[in-house]
């Protein structure tokens, strides 16, 4: 009897990805540590605030996850986020039409940069790390020319502010709702469509995916387009949150986005990972940042702890197989 129960528990446990379980364990640990440090930390308002902060990172990390599942990486996130924010704010200045087009236009700019990345990776076979660094530099150059090197004066439209800070469902900020919608779409795309299965297939072995009749180049390019669009959407929301765009507002999102995906158990080599893990990774990173700021840790300490935690977590479960 006991043995049967044991094996059932064992089977239940085996269904969980150890990485995702570890990530959720770490979230609990952080909550406990935060709770002992300050009683405010566990109040619903504060946790909801954290969820709101997490939603920006969550949306950006969703795009990053698709790219990492392909076995690629997107280092153009910082300036795609900024382009999304700046371009949508720039369009707002052009009357009613501008106000309506602001959000789609910002996202479209991100999609365009993403498609350039995708074209380079899929058709020109340039390593993704290199081409995305290059488009990041070009996007930065374009924005520097556009703004003249200063923070632009345009401000966000009411719709953008509403999207980032308003409430459709009482008590639940709209940005969290956005993340939930993006997340649900991502889960559907990854698990219920041929596109999603092709992403996993390409991540495991692109050659095999190609030989089984998948148009791998189109899939890769599309995935980069989606990733660019999501990064830009993150930028649009951030601009709505801060009610304007700023230079280098995206710098703070590259490392956290990659870290969130990888800490959530998605293999950096591609082909393995679940969206639940990414959600856990995003919450983990956000809580860590929040605790460090509650402790009034200076910037240098945050950077160091941040790097150390990521390395430590990766060493725990992100290691490659030993070569034999």
């Amino acid at each position: 009897m006991n043995a049967i129960l044991d094996s059932q528990i064992f089977r239940l446990l085996r269904r969980f990805d150890p990485a995702v379980t570890t990530a959720f364990g770490c979230i609990l640990l952080l909550l406990v540590v935060g709770g002992t440090y300050s009683s405010n930390f566990l109040s619903p308002e504060y946790l909801l605030q954290q969820l709101k902060v997490a939603s920006f990172l969550g949306i950006i990390a969703t795009g990053m996850m698709m790219i990492i599942l392909l076995g690629q990486i997107d280092l153009s996130v910082p300036w795609v986020v900024t382009v999304g924010a700046m371009m949508s704010c720039a369009v707002v200045g052009h009357g009613t039409v501008g106000a309506i087009l602001a959000i789609p236009f910002g996202i479209l700019c991100g999609v365009a940069i993403g498609l350039v990345n995708g074209f380079g990776v899929a058709y020109l076979r340039i390593p993704s790390m290199i081409i995305t660094l290059a488009t990041n530099a070009v996007a930065q150059g374009l924005m520097v020319v556009y703004t003249g090197g200063f923070s632009p004066q345009d401000s966000a439209s009411p719709a953008m502010r509403y999207l980032a800070t308003g409430f459709v469902i009482p008590g639940l900020p709209n940005s969290v709702v956005c993340w939930a919608i993006v997340g649900a779409l991502a889960v559907f795309l990854l698990t219920r469509t041929t596109f999603g299965r092709a992403i996993y297939g390409i991540g495991n072995r692109e050659r095999a995916a190609y030989l089984s009749g998948i148009n791998t180049r189109r899939i890769v390019m599309t995935a980069f387009g989606i990733s660019g669009g999501l990064a830009a959407l993150g930028g649009v929301l951030l601009a709505g949150y801060a009610s304007k765009a700023a230079q280098s507002m995206g710098d703070a999102y590259l490392l956290p986005a990659i870290a969130a995906v990888v800490l959530g158990g998605t293999s950096i080599l591609g082909g393995r990972g679940s969206y639940l893990g990414t959600v856990a990774g995003v919450m983990l990173i956000t809580l860590l940042q929040s605790i460090l700021s509650v402790m009034q840790m200076p910037e240098f300490g945050r950077q160091i702890i941040y790097g150390v935690v990521i390395i430590a977590m990766l060493l725990l479960y992100g290691r490659e197989k030993l070569q034999r």
Binding site: I73, V262, I268, I304, I311
Partner: peptide, 13 residues
């Protein structure tokens, strides 16, 4: 560890 992620993290340190 993969050099890309590992060196981004050590870079932060």
């Amino acid at each position: 560890l993969q050099p890309i992620v590992a060196t981004i993290a050590t870079g932060a340190i």
